[in-house]
């Protein structure tokens, strides 16, 4: 994964994003595992809670797994154009409806972030204090969330109507005017990775690793 990220030129960004994403879960995992996991070797105690070597070991394993999952998802998102991915799935026989739902979901995230930013500006310009006390921030939840949700629903409706007006639900085979560039070495690498995945899973199930 590191080699692939390095090759794609996103290693630094990938590590930063993955650390940021796993940090909130990591903190709770460490606290819960270290202090509540039963073990015989006590490192230190805080009140009634004992920090054990077994707890530290379990927390470390969990963190590594979390980080690996985060790296995988991050690498995929940073190096794959969502539209290209979904179009290629459609070319391989996935239903256009499923493909649309997938691409709409992926593309909705940046659109929602942009929308939320403008809505935040709009409500702050009306005096909504988003930098003040917890009470003031709670007061701002509805004015901030309401337009985001309503806008997102409206967008989905408009997009569906626009698609229908272009014969989206027409039955029959589609002709994609675009093809994913797929070089020979990429196909070999893909099959090799799938084989590696199957072998790893088999070895894990059989207890060899």
């Amino acid at each position: 994964m590191v080699v692939l990220a390095l090759r794609a030129g996103v290693l630094g960004q990938l590590v930063r994003v993955s650390l940021l994403l796993t940090m909130p879960i990591a903190v709770s995992v460490v606290l819960v595992s270290v202090f509540t996991r039963a073990g015989t070797t006590v490192l230190f105690a805080i009140g009634p809670f004992d920090a054990t070597v077994e707890g530290v070991d379990f927390a470390a394993q969990t963190l590594v797994r979390l980080f690996a999952i985060s790296l995988s998802i991050g690498l995929f998102l940073m190096t794959t154009d969502p539209r290209a991915f979904v179009f290629d799935l459609e070319r391989r026989g996935v239903s256009p409806r499923v493909a649309f739902v997938a691409v709409a979901t992926i593309e909705a995230v940046p659109a929602l972030v942009e929308r939320a930013g403008v809505i935040g500006e709009s409500q702050r310009a009306r005096g909504l204090d988003t930098e003040g006390s917890v009470r003031a921030r709670l007061r701002g939840v509805l004015p901030l969330i309401g337009p985001v949700i309503i806008g997102a629903l409206t967008d989905v409706e408009e997009r569906s109507l626009a698609l229908e007006s272009r014969a989206f639900s027409r039955p029959g085979r589609r002709h994609l005017l675009w093809a994913m560039p797929d070089r020979t070495w990429e196909r070999w690498l893909r099959w090799a990775l799938i084989a590696l995945l199957v072998a790893t899973a088999a070895a894990r199930i059989s207890g060899r690793i």
């Binding site: 809505i119 009306r126 204090d129 988003t130 003031a136 337009p147 806008g151 409206t154």
Partner: peptide, 23 residues
């Protein structure tokens, strides 16, 4: 000075009403 305080002096009507209306 915070935006919340400045909003008492300067009010901005944004271009897209759907980025504001919530009630």
């Amino acid at each position: 000075i915070r935006v919340a305080a400045l909003a008492a002096k300067v009010g901005i009507v944004f271009q897209n009403p759907d980025r504001q209306i919530f009630a």
